[in-house]
Write a protein that binds this DNA or RNA. Structure first.
Ligand SMILES: Nc1nc2c(ncn2[C@H]2C[C@H](O)[C@@H](COP(=O)(O)OP(=O)(O)OP(=O)(O)O)O2)c(=O)[nH]1
Ligand SMILES: [Mg+2]
Ligand SMILES: [Mg+2]
Ligand SMILES: [Zn+2]
Length: 604
DNA sequence: GCCGTTTTCGGCCCGACTGTTTTCAGTCG
């Protein structure tokens, strides 16, 4: 079966070829179509099989022409239009565009003049001076290309937010200590709390940018400076992480936050609204056209410093942008939380809300809403710390209850518990509860293995005595979608089962989820009142925002758990809340944002 | 090529930095 990625890639390449020919707008159309396909959760192939060209056309950014090309690719294995384009410039576009600074125009020249087709050709010609001699190229371009080859971004790999969050915070603290800096804020996909980020984006407010930029590019962990200007710089760190910075003046904070937080599509949508109203939106503010009155000159802005002047044209009057709230308001929208800015209906909802219509924006669960944690491993299985240590750490995090969920015996590598040992564990939990004297309640639970046939690794007689039963898949990832779905559905149909843990089994940057029909799982979970977990352990981040939204819409409740294996891991809960917010979840959707009694009653 | 509570035609976000160029194209955010 042809993957979405393969379809997206070919569409993206068509876009690049059209850009080489300087054709306007079409490249953007193909690029948008490629992005749409790439971000699709279901398979295009399956979608086409079910609904044909008509179904494809219903996707945003896909019209008749592109739908037919996708059809051609899925049924014949190639697209004539693409093959023709490729024949003219038969190069490895994916590899070449992966070099920072190389785009379609340069790639075209490199092929036409030097027959450069791939990275090998590129390196050879950069070294032997042929590239530097090309018209429009030069020594610097050639050396940048060589550097680009050396630093070649491990293609497509994104950083896991939880792994780099503290690195970003460190840089931010450093910038905050620079004289004249009043704000340094993590923006981009990190502010939107996406589980992975392509780079770190930082917004700084300062009257003068020079010192900030100098300090930024000379930080000890910087290995490469992509660009250094007065408002914008970009570097690469030892870790491979790219960091982009923008410095603006205080009056533009709102507009700059909005711009630099994104997402790009969200920005473009807001800018279109501004255009419709006869205004202009950029990272400096929302501006009104100069209104010329006969014989009178429009009052121009106060004498500008370099930063104030940037991005402005004479006479444009700033009407919003000092803060984000005011910006959205002026555009006729309710304020949209960063986690929602993904062009998944938030603009329409914000418009409705501002007009008093329904449904408006969700009241997202807040970052301090969690009262408990429902997945915790201890040294009874593969955790590092004792029940008491975990209880104390959870209490310090402000939690009122935790559920102990050690693995079960099938997971031998984790020393999983069998019926006998879990009963011994209950005695220890009882004693910890006595020691904690009501400061925190430790509940008896399990992360019970789902066996191949959908039965469970602990007998019902044990499960029935637990406060909350979590189940999860740790084996037979390769089952067919149908078998895997049947297996999981069978497990959650066991009346003792309360929560399906890390439901899709993905490990970011390591392995994709197993094949499972999540729509079916969600449908069944609704009938069995089973909760689905939002596992906040950074490389899991499971379920994803997309499925969270489906649960919210289906009325299926969720838990947010740290999946802590050590006392420090309770900090992960924050990422779980962020992920829940990305999925439009409210307090009422998250069972451990409720008091223990209410939570347990719902699961009964 | 896509898209539509002002349109099925005529728009399409907007700006910074770099290198190579006598005024800007290419690339990127
Ligand atoms: N208006 C506009 N804004 C853009 C454009 N490209 C990027 N931005 C804004 C929105 C982005 O969220 C922000 C940071 O850009 P990034 O490329 O770092 O994207 P982002 O952080 O959203 O995702 P990432 O995880 O880094 O891939 O800059 C653009 O073409 N137009
Ligand atoms: Mg980013
Ligand atoms: Mg960036
Ligand atoms: Zn597990």
């Amino acid at each position: 079966m042809i993957s979405n990625h393969a379809v997206a890639r070919i569409l993206r390449e068509i876009g690049l070829y059209l850009e080489m020919q300087d054709i306007p707008f079409k490249p953007r159309a193909y690029e948008k179509a490629a992005e749409e396909i790439e971000s699709l959760s279901e398979s295009v192939s399956a979608l086409y099989k079910e609904g044909g060209v008509k179904a494809l056309k219903e996707l945003p950014a896909i019209g008749q022409a592109i739908a037919e090309k996708i059809e051609e690719y899925l049924t014949k294995g190639n697209i004539m239009y693409y093959e023709k384009l490729k024949k003219q410039i038969p190069v490895d576009l994916e590899a070449l565009t992966g070099i920072e600074g190389l785009g379609p125009k340069k790639i075209k020249v490199l092929y036409n003049k030097l027959k450069i087709k791939n990275l090998k050709d590129l390196e050879r010609n950069a070294k032997n001076g042929k590239i530097a001699n090309l018209e429009g190229f030069g020594e610097k371009t050639a050396s940048n290309i060589l550097e680009g080859i050396e630093f070649q971004r491990t293609s497509g790999i994104r950083f896991i937010l939880g792994h780099v969050f503290s690195d970003i915070e460190l840089i931010i603290e450093r910038l905050k200590s620079v004289r004249g800096v009043t704000h340094a804020i993590s923006v981009g996909s990190a502010r939107r709390m996406r589980e992975t980020i392509g780079d770190a984006d930082i917004l700084v407010v300062a009257k003068k940018s020079l010192a900030v930029m100098q300090i930024f590019v000379s930080m000890p962990e910087v290995v490469r400076v992509f660009a250094q200007g007065s408002t914008k710089s970009s570097v690469q760190l030892k870790s491979g992480l790219q960091v982009d910075i923008r410095v603006v003046s205080r009056e533009s904070l709102g507009a700059a936050l909005n711009y630099f937080t994104g997402s790009k599509d969200h920005n473009v949508a807001l800018r279109k609204i501004a255009i419709k109203k006869g205004w202009k939106l950029n990272e400096y503010g929302l501006y009104q056209r100069p209104t010329y009155r006969t014989g009178k000159q429009v009052k121009s802005d106060p004498p500008p410093s370099r930063l104030r002047r940037a991005g402005r044209r004479q006479g444009w009057k700033m009407i919003a942008g000092r803060d984000e709230e005011g910006l959205y308001k002026k555009l006729g929208l309710s304020y949209i939380e960063p986690e929602l800015r993904e062009m998944t209906g938030e603009i329409e909802a914000a418009l409705r809300q501002a007009q008093g219509k329904h449904p408006g924006l969700p009241r997202l669960i807040s970052y301090n809403a969690l009262q408990g944690d429902l997945q915790i491993q201890t040294n009874w299985s593969d955790g590092a710390h004792s029940i008491l240590e975990m209880a104390k750490a959870a209490h310090a995090q402000g939690l009122n209850y935790i559920l102990i969920t050690d693995h079960t015996k099938r997971l031998t590598v984790t020393h999983g518990l069998d019926a006998r040992r879990i009963q011994q564990q209950w005695r220890e939990i009882d004693s910890v509860n006595k020691k904690m004297r009501g400061k925190i309640k430790v509940l008896k639970g399990t992360e019970c293995d789902i066996l191949k046939n959908g039965t469970l690794d602990l007998p019902d007689s044990i499960l029935s005595k637990l406060d909350v039963v979590g189940v999860s898949v740790h084996s037979f990832f390769a089952l067919s979608k149908k078998e895997q779905t049947t297996r999981i559905v069978r497990a959650i149909q066991n009346p003792h089962v309360d929560i399906l843990l890390h439901p899709t089994g993905r490990l970011l940057n390591k392995r994709p989820s197993y094949e499972v029909d999540m729509d079916e799982v969600i449908r069944v979970a609704k009938t069995t009142t089973t909760a689905l977990e939002i596992d906040a352990f950074p490389e899991r981040s499971d379920i994803s925002a997309e499925y969270i939204k489906k649960c919210v819409n289906a009325g299926v409740k969720m838990s947010i758990s740290s999946d802590a294996h050590a006392t420090s891991h309770f900090a992960f809960l924050r990422y779980g809340v962020g992920l829940a917010r990305c999925g439009w979840a409210r307090k009422r959707d998250i069972i451990n944002a409720w008091p223990e009694k209410k939570m347990k009653k719902m699961l009964k």
